[in-house]
Amino acid sequence: MNDDESIGERRRWVAEAVDRYGDELTRYACRLTGDPESARDVVQETFVRLCRQRVEQVNGHLGAWLYTVCRNRALDVQRKEKRMGRASETVLATQADAAPPPPAAAESNESAARALTMLDDLPANQAEAIRLKFQAGFSYRQIAHVLGTSAGNVGFLIHAGLKTLRARLKVN
């Protein structure tokens, strides 16, 4: 039946999206919500939302769509958590526990690990723009979409963030 075919296609499409973006998206969400559990929940909801989109509406900018929706939901959750008594201080504390440790592998470059730690000392929007660029691999325009700002501002954020990091790392 037609219905069955399109359901099958849809399932494949969603499954591919989950495979391709799921893990990184969850990592991204964890930065915003502060703990892995709520991050997983947020990402799960994001993909369920995806199930309700028409394929042709979203294809072509699937990544940006997923990150945008995920981000908005994560921020909502953050706000609600605050209101419900889990003040940001507790997020700070759980963040300390939940933040992924620097790469533990034997060959891991110490400088890379340092850069990662310093990334979190940058202003939040700079750190986020940098992650979207260097981890998720988005273009300035795509990042602008996710963050709800202009490409020019994204360029500024990344430039400023890198500049500070360079000064602190004293790379040579």
Partner: peptide
């Protein structure tokens, strides 16, 4: 300098363990 820093970041960020659903 910028390129080196960018590479470091890419490396560090790639090493971050992803979270799985």
């Amino acid at each position: 300098d910028i390129c080196a820093t960018a590479d470091l970041l890419r490396e560090g960020l790639a090493g971050e363990p992803p979270l799985k659903l």
